[in-house]
């Protein structure tokens, strides 16, 4: 038997073994459930720096302080802008309800108007205050929506040296796709800690829209926490960098922060 034939048989044997013995890919909904079941703490306070860079390299920087708290399955999030002076005191509050048929409630405080403005929750596909993340992205943080997508596991990959499963999500219908601004999403989910490490988005026409990387993931007070989100919009060339610091899950967050009064008063 020639060496080439022996090599060929060996490869064939390996492929047969791979097919027989390899672990099947986990179910996509199971992965989504694991992502959402991950411990996020009841409440968290953190500082967030947003760096927004346009295609010519011009960068704008916003310093914010953000808080999030769960009330059962209801989640409330508030972001206060601290710098620069032009946007200082702008604040965004959202109450995110677990019921699929109940719209979130959202408010925006614009200091130039000195008024808390009710905003439509169907703006969720709009980009959040000049960033490359949508209102929905901001609201979901590290979680995924169970109701907006049909999903399947399409394979495996590696991001920053971490093994992950590829999760493909397609909006359940055209209306939802239009609302979200996405026609398809592919997420690379870490197979050990069940956090998304990379997301690729396509627009509703199927063209590449943006790619997000979730990096510098490490434990804070026992909870896996992302400290860096990088987003590049392939259509506009605009990039957004979110840097989290002073993350605190332990010292509690006052309920008073998640109110319209708090938006008006600022930090």
């Amino acid at each position: 038997m020639k060496i080439q034939q022996l090599f060929g048989m060996g490869v064939l044997l390996m492929l047969i073994c791979e097919a027989v013995w390899s672990t099947p890919l986990p179910d996509a909904d199971e992965i989504a459930r694991r992502i959402n079941a991950r411990d996020e703490g009841v409440a968290v306070a953190r500082s967030l720096t947003m760096r927004l860079t346009d295609r010519r390299g011009k960068t704008r920087t916003r310093e914010t302080r953000a808080f999030r708290k769960y009330y059962g399955k209801e989640k409330r999030t508030v972001i206060f802008y601290l710098k620069p002076a032009n946007v200082r005191n702008t604040a965004f509050l959202t109450w995110d309800y677990p019921q699929a048929d109940k719209d979130d409630d959202q408010w925006l405080y614009l200091p130039a108007m000195r008024k808390v403005r009710r905003i439509s929750a169907s703006d969720r596909g709009d980009y959040f205050l000049g960033t490359d993340l949508t209102y929905e992205d901001i609201k979901l943080e590290t979680r995924v929506s169970m109701n907006d997508y049909r999903r399947k596991t399409t394979g495996e990959d590696e991001v920053d040296g971490h093994h992950c499963y590829l999760l493909e999500s397609i909006p359940v219908d055209e209306d939802t796709a239009r609302e979200l601004g996405y026609g398809r999403v592919e997420q690379c989910v870490d197979s050990e800690i069940w956090m998304v490490r990379r997301s690729r988005f396509w627009d509703i026409k199927g063209k590449p829209l943006k790619t997000s990387y979730f990096r510098d993931i490490r434990k804070v007070q026992g909870i896996w926490t992302q400290h860096r989100i990088e987003v590049e919009n392939h259509k506009s060339g605009h990039r957004t960098l979110f840097l989290f610091r002073d993350v605190d899950y332990e010292h509690g967050v006052s309920d008073d922060l998640f109110t319209q009064n708090a938006l008006r008063r600022g930090l």
């Binding site: 719209d103 409630d105 959202q106 009710r118 905003i119 929750a121 169907s122 703006d123």
Partner: peptide, 11 residues
């Protein structure tokens, strides 16, 4: 008063 309904806010 103000209230959000879908794409609309009435106030």
């Amino acid at each position: 008063f103000s209230h959000a309904i879908g794409d609309w806010v009435i106030r």
